[in-house]
Design a protein around this nucleic acid. Structure first.
Lengths: 195, 195
DNA sequence: TCTCCATCTTTACGTTGTAAACATGCAAAG
DNA sequence: CTTTGCATGTTTACAACGTAAAGATGGAGA
């Protein structure tokens, strides 16, 4: 047998996750298949079965990692902003949110449910809840705990909605996106502070 | 041959669209296939090819019809509301939007790009632009034409984002959704009026 | 009456996810 | 040491999918 190709791989689980992330970054989402990922990892198409029960579980783990990086990114952004007020931090997080979705469209789509083939892995649910808690914290810092729920939902809906519309190219082309995004974030925070 | 089953169907194109809409209403989106639709229409799996170039075109036409019904629904809602102010009409349209997305999850997902298998049919693009114009009109009635673009994008992002989060079951379960939705629409309109 | 041709069927191909049977080789037990 | 167990990959198989091409059908116009 080929000595270059050992039967047992070092850490195939990790290798598959990386191959999956790379595939999602390079190809259209609908073209990323279990077999394609296995192909990229240099193993047979049935090898993933031992590390992930199904295609959905594999994508679920990738989404979980996405949420992890997502939380880190937003946390850094809220700390590094010049304006250290609740409004400033919320704006910075909103901006970082939009940039993350823009930079990682496929993984973002996975995280927020555009792709049906993904399963709700325990770790994925855990990290997505962490993301929600992070957002809710930033909202509470601005308007207090009373309306934290609706407030956070309002913020999340805005940035998520915009991210999806952008990703799906549903934003009318005559809009200058950069300016519209800033305006949108401002309106979002303004609406939050109202009452 | 079976006399009950004539070779040529009356209007297969219409029949396929209806079968597709019914399938989308009854089954999970990922289970709706070209062959399944053909099965429901009682024809061979390759019959659709003559009326629709591909699966994407069929779904595109269904999405176009969805947009048509969508525009009608929002138009009626904005006229029938008790509060005939720009704010009142915008709130009514927002509420109708959320109800439409809730009542027709699969077709809504098709319309707004959750399903990759759909093609941007000319009629689909036309009707989606009509929907945008309708929304922008309601926004202009409230804040004038100067910031119509960002304003409409803000409104659309909010209701679309919320609709997607709800459809994907990403809204934390501890929230009482009905109240949160009303609050969200209020914050949305409030943020719009701000400057 | 005959012929054309849009419409529908049949057949075929390459792809996918999943499952089951088989192969391999490390690691621990005797 | 040897042997045996078991996690890890491979091979093979199956049903379903979208699409394409070739054949069948029958209504409409010459």
């Amino acid at each position: 047998m080929d000595p270059k190709k050992p039967y047992h791989i070092g850490d195939l689980r990790e290798k598959l996750l990386l191959a999956g992330e790379l595939a999602l970054a390079e190809m259209p989402v609908e073209a990323v298949s279990l077999r394609e990922i296995a192909r990229r990892a240099g193993v047979s198409h049935a090898a993933p079965k031992h590390h992930f029960g199904s295609m959905g579980d594999l994508l679920g783990e990738i989404a979980a990692r996405g949420f992890q990086k997502f939380v880190e990114t937003l946390d850094e952004a809220s700390k590094q902003t010049a304006v250290q007020s609740p409004e400033g931090r919320l704006m910075a997080m909103g901006w970082a949110y939009l940039r993350f979705a823009e930079a990682n469209p496929a993984i973002y789509a996975l995280m927020f449910g555009k792709v049906d083939r993904m399963a709700m892995t325990p770790t994925m649910v855990r990290w997505s809840m962490a993301a929600w808690a992070q957002l809710e914290g930033a909202v509470v810092a601005l308007i207090g705990p009373a309306r934290a729920g609706s407030g956070a939902l309002h913020v999340w809906s805005s940035v998520h909605g915009l991210s999806m519309l952008k990703a799906e190219r549903r934003v009318p082309p005559h809009l200058t996106l950069h300016a519209a995004e800033e305006n949108l974030l401002r309106m979002m925070v303004a609406g939050l502070s109202e009452h």
